[in-house]
């Protein structure tokens, strides 16, 4: 057993193995994971049918507005939220900050998000996620970045999008990059796979696996800028297996109603009549930002290596 408790044995049973880590993400498929900053919001998320909540101190839109260093959520907040809901609880650690991740594991939550939305603690290295019992989800902008994270032990990938903007354009770009990268590999000949691994800066074994299966080795959700039911369904039609929704819900005017509509649109993503029905009478979405007009240094999605 390692310092972080991976692959512990108790009574001949295995905990923390790859299958149970990736497996929880499989169980979240087709669902919505909602950012919450208070116990009350966590209860609303559960009431609306979220498959999990992400406990954090400020939603990305507020991190963007307030500036300063964004760190792991306060331990007491995470614990209170865990007490308040019966669905899985996730929380964010800074990129490379393996001690924040150790603390979150010790709190007994269900998933750690090593997230670019927080201020990175290491500008070269991500966390060695293999050494943990708790599973990790990591952000990615393209297939190479996704596979580097999976190589470090991530059990779930979310395409990054641009968090806190209410603008889906980056989420679309990143999902197309990942799915397109997979389709490209499927068209390659066997002897071309090593050059593709070099090009993507990704482990060769995963390139071979994708060539054979046509699938990412782990579940792939979308994130970053999803603000309406139609946005959620768009990401599903582009190949997302579920959605993370951050500022979009609790920055809208009627969060419970809004959250329910996004959950329904994620399940019935290919039924426009249902999306129309749940979108009726929703009130305004969060205002949103024009990413093209945003200074490069304000982009969160470029964090991660």
């Amino acid at each position: 057993m390692s310092a972080n408790g991976a692959a512990a044995d108790k009574n001949g049973q295995n905990t923390g193995g790859l299958r149970v880590k990736r497996g929880l993400a499989e169980m979240l498929k087709g669902g919505v994971i909602m950012d919450v900053v208070t116990v009350e919001q966590a209860r609303i998320a559960e009431e609306a049918g979220a498959v999990a909540v992400m406990a954090l101190e400020r939603v990305p839109a507020d991190i963007r507005r307030d500036g300063g260093v964004a760190r792991m959520s306060a331990v007491s907040l995470v614990s209170e939220i865990k007490q308040a809901v019966t669905i899985p609880v996730m929380a964010k650690a800074r990129i490379g900050h393996f001690v924040e991740a150790q603390v979150l594991q010790a709190l007994g939550i269900d998933y750690v998000d090593e997230s670019e939305v927080l201020t990175p603690a290491d500008e070269e290295h991500h966390i060695d996620k293999w050494s943990f019992t708790i599973p990790f989800v990591c952000g990615a902008r393209d297939l190479g970045e996704a596979l580097r994270r999976i190589g470090e032990g991530a059990a779930m990938i979310r395409t990054k999008g641009e968090a806190g903007t209410g603008n889906v354009v980056e989420a679309v770009r990143h999902m197309r990059a990942v799915r397109g990268g997979i389709r490209r590999i499927q068209g390659l000949r066997r002897e071309e796979l090593m050059a593709e691994a070099k090009h993507l800066q990704a482990p060769y074994e995963f390139i071979v696996e994708i060539a054979e299966t046509g699938e990412l080795p782990v579940v792939n959700f979308s994130a970053g800028g999803i603000a309406t039911p139609a946005d959620a369904a768009l990401m599903m039609q582009l190949g997302a297996e579920g959605n993370f929704v951050g500022s979009g819900i609790f920055k809208s005017e009627d969060p419970l109603h809004y959250a329910k509509a996004i959950v329904a649109a994620t399940t019935y993503f290919d039924k426009p009549e249902v999306i129309a029905e749940v979108s009726a009478g929703l009130g305004p979405a969060m205002r949103g930002l024009d990413i093209a007009a945003m200074p490069k240094e304000e982009m969160l999605s470029t964090r991660g290596w």
Partner: peptide, 27 residues
């Protein structure tokens, strides 16, 4: 418990015979 307590275990189902069935228990 929570996700860190999710586990795998070999299960004996008499109707299936050998080998044991690998049970994956997630939350």
């Amino acid at each position: 418990g929570s996700q860190v307590d999710s586990f795998e275990a070999d299960l004996v189902l008499s109707e299936l015979g050998d080998p044991p069935f690998r049970g994956v228990f997630i939350r």
